[in-house]
Amino acid sequence: MEHTTINLKLKVWRQKNAQDSGRFENYDAKDISTEMSFLEMFDVLNERLINEGQDPIAFDHDCREGICGMCSMHINGRAHGPWQGTTTCQLHMRAFKDGETITVEPWRAKAFPVLKDLTVDRSAFDRIQQAGGYVSVNTGNAQDGNALPIDKDKADASFAAAACIGCGACVAACKNSSAMLFTSAKVSQYALLPQGQPERTTRVLNMVAQMDKEGFGACTNTGACEAECPKEISISNIARLNREYLSAQLSL
């Protein structure tokens, strides 16, 4: 692949800690190879800031192959930037034009307080999972894996929901900061499988209750979450969650 270098202007959110009110700072990013990933561009910038004696920009990242769900930048108004089905770490500089100004913000939601700069606290997701995102089966209790045949379509649909990486882009993209896509993906994964049936009712009730308690908004069905989800999880899962929740309530 041919690569060129470009110069960019960055407008990055800087915030010392959760208490600080924060502000934007401008930076020049020069001689950026179009082969770089977005985070490698930040590495280059941070290296320069360190060498100049400034505080580098804090951002979450780990696997850098689009699966751990740690990276979380709101780039030019888009969760994880302009490419569809892509995490920030997999976004490459080919996506930008020479001379462009890029605005980078943290995920913004009441339930995701900023810890520093672009780093936010997403522990609310862990707590939603704790409320019921599991099958209660102790180690060693399992029957043979093939004793329970599962309809391939159902298994595939369950996998598609389970592919969620818990990055929080759905919350970031939603005008209401709703966590419905995240919660629905987990509820769907289990609702579609026979293993999930025994706890089906309590799971959905408890996970939704926790979701509401964490301070996420309600769903307006705009579909922005689905459009921004790096794993392209469908809002049909949200419909399923609504259905599961209603039938859990209606069950005698």
Binding site: Y134, V135, V137, T139, G140, N141, A142, Q143, D144, G145, N146, L148, P149, I150, D151, K152, A155, D156, S158, F159, A162, Q189, Y190, L193, Q195, G196
Partner: peptide, 23 residues
Amino acid sequence: SGNIIDQCVAQGVPFAREYGGLL
């Protein structure tokens, strides 16, 4: 090794399956 697969299936890990529903 076999117990691991059984345990994971029981936990609801959506492994790839054949049309007959088996792993």
